[in-house]
């Protein structure tokens, strides 16, 4: 996707994200733009890998030419042009990330924090660490995304993918309250927060039937968590 041209201020800007990254020993300035991070990212372009996986999908054959998805031209075509996206990819995700991982790194380096903080990318990152693993300069790109998410929360920036932010919030609330995550409670909290009551309702029946769902919370970690959180609050509030 084309990115609007942006103005860059002259001189070095010590932005908050650069400061936070420095504290976490992540140096984005080592990036020499090889793009391995973006090409390895499973969600950067959700259609890119179809050239690989389509060799297995039994799509219908072309009536005239008899060519199927296994044929070379088709395999080469998908993944190279975004307008060849198969219908099976959900509308909202056809483009995957709006900024690729390398563009996030560029944005942070150039002091264009807001561009990164307002991207879909930081919420779509699964934290799989493929980018960080393949980076020849040892930059933990997934961690950059996490740190940007922490900043977005701090600054009250409206998340581009609100469901992901809702998950984080409800997960933390659940964990802090029960001590151990009460999964069924978490699912219900999320439904209330996002109003997506029908999401995955097709899974509820089979999962209950198979006895996969624990109906009751486990309070064995309740006291440890309570003590932990009171010390945590003090440590957080303390100097440094």
């Amino acid at each position: 996707m084309a990115v609007e041209p942006v103005k860059i201020k002259r001189g070095f800007q010590e932005t908050e994200s650069l400061k936070m990254l420095k504290e976490s020993a992540v140096n984005v300035n080592l990036c020499y733009q090889c793009r391995k991070c973006s090409s390895g990212c499973p969600v950067a372009d959700l259609t890119a890998r179809d050239s690989v996986s389509d060799r297995t999908s039994a799509g219908p054959l072309d009536e005239k030419t008899g060519a199927g998805p296994d044929s070379v031209p088709e395999a080469l075509r998908s993944g190279m042009a975004r307008d060849s996206v198969p219908n099976s990819v959900p509308e909202a995700l056809r483009s995957g990330m709006d900024l690729t991982p390398i563009q996030i790194i560029r944005a942070v380096r150039l002091g264009l924090e807001d561009l990164a903080l307002n991207s879909k990318t930081i919420w779509l990152c699964t934290g799989c660490e493929t980018c960080a693993t393949r980076c020849p300069q040892d930059i933990d790109i997934a961690k950059v995304n996490s740190i940007l998410r922490i900043m977005a929360y701090k600054r009250g920036i409206k998340p581009k993918l609100p469901n992901v932010a809702a998950f984080d919030r409800q997960f933390m609330a659940n964990m802090k309250f029960f001590g151990r995550v009460y999964e069924m409670g978490l699912v219900n909290q999320l439904k209330l927060a996002t109003r997506n009551f029908m999401q995955d309702m097709d899974l509820a029946g089979p999962m209950i039937f198979k006895g996969k769902i624990g109906f009751f919370p486990n309070f064995s970690g309740f006291l440890t968590m309570k003590k932990f959180l009171s010390r945590f609050k003090k440590a957080r509030a303390g100097k440094n």
Partner: peptide, 15 residues
């Protein structure tokens, strides 16, 4: 008395 380790969210909320 073990407690949740914070996966999957804590690292994106508070270091």
């Amino acid at each position: 008395g073990w407690i949740c380790c914070g996966a999957s969210s804590a690292h994106s909320v508070d270091e």
